[in-house]
């Protein structure tokens, strides 16, 4: 396990545990769609249909069983000069964005997340590949973080 990418000096700030509910609801919808399609296929009388349905359900369930770990693995940390963001277990990715490089900070709230009181926060730099989106932050924390980041970005901005 020591082969995994870790930054030992960093303690990650987790996202809200309630985000798990949103993830599970999303998976439930996927499962229902898969079931509907599968049942429809079975009614057509195709032999392989039950197998396909079984595999699809198994994949969704497997994914669901890993979701808690996956959500726990999402974390961020504000350092002196940059924001660190980490996600993924199997495919791990750690990004560092200097504050001066942020062009804008976005907060998104879907209907589901809104009922849970959560927000997604997205950072945009001049590079499209930065791709930092922190999902499932509590609303107050997201707004506070956004204001903080914008203020920091403003004080350190330099060109592109």
């Amino acid at each position: 396990m020591s082969d995994r990418l870790e930054l030992p000096a960093v303690t990650w700030r987790p996202i809200s545990a309630k985000y798990l509910i949103a993830e599970f609801l999303g998976l439930l919808v996927t499962l229902l769609v898969a079931l509907t399609l599968g049942v429809a296929l079975i009614f057509t009388g195709w032999d392989a249909a039950p197998w396909i349905l079984g595999v699809a359900v198994a994949v969704v369930l497997l994914y669901a069983s890993l979701t808690p770990r996956r959500v726990r693995a999402i974390g961020y940390q504000l350092r002196d000069d940059d924001l660190l963001f980490r996600r993924g277990i199997l495919f791990r990715r750690i990004v560092a964005v200097p504050y001066g490089r942020m062009q804008l900070v976005d907060i998104n709230r879907g209907p589901l997340l809104r009922t849970l009181g959560l927000s997604d926060l997205r950072l945009v730099t001049a590079a499209a590949s930065t791709g930092v989106a922190i999902p499932g932050l509590p609303e107050a924390e997201a707004e506070e973080l956004r204001d903080h980041l914008v203020a920091l970005a403003e004080s350190r901005r330099a060109g592109i």
Binding site: D3, R92, T125, A127
Partner: peptide, 24 residues
Amino acid sequence: QSVSVRQGPLLRALRLASVHLHTV
């Protein structure tokens, strides 16, 4: 603009990782 380091299962098995400097 930002820096990232990433690792998939294959790289992890070999104790490797890849790095990426993000520019425009």
